[in-house]
């Protein structure tokens, strides 16, 4: 699974994208994996996941064809 990174997530991972080999069936599993693998994620105010350019709930199933992005706290405007 390849995921897109933005903002502070690029600094935490030190990359623009992340390729994950682990089996992560849902958005919730991905969030949990991120917090374990990169403890700095736990210090963020929130972290959301977008699947195919829309915010996804923890129950959303992930597939290898999905466009997945990690969305750290927003600060536009």
């Amino acid at each position: 699974m390849r995921v897109l990174l933005f903002g502070i997530m690029k600094d935490i991972v030190a990359a623009k994208t992340l390729t994950i080999e682990a089996e992560l069936p849902t958005v919730g599993d991905l969030k949990h994996w991120l917090k374990q693998e990169y403890p700095a994620v736990q210090d963020l105010k929130a972290v959301m996941i977008a699947v195919n350019k829309a915010y996804a709930s923890d129950e959303t199933m992930l597939s290898s064809e999905d466009e997945i992005a990690i969305i750290p706290p927003l600060s536009g405007g």
Binding site: F6, G7, I8, A50, Y55, A69, I71, P72, L74, S75, G76, G77
Partner: peptide, 8 residues
Amino acid sequence: LKETVPIW
């Protein structure tokens, strides 16, 4: 926009 648009 500040709450939902993915801009940082």
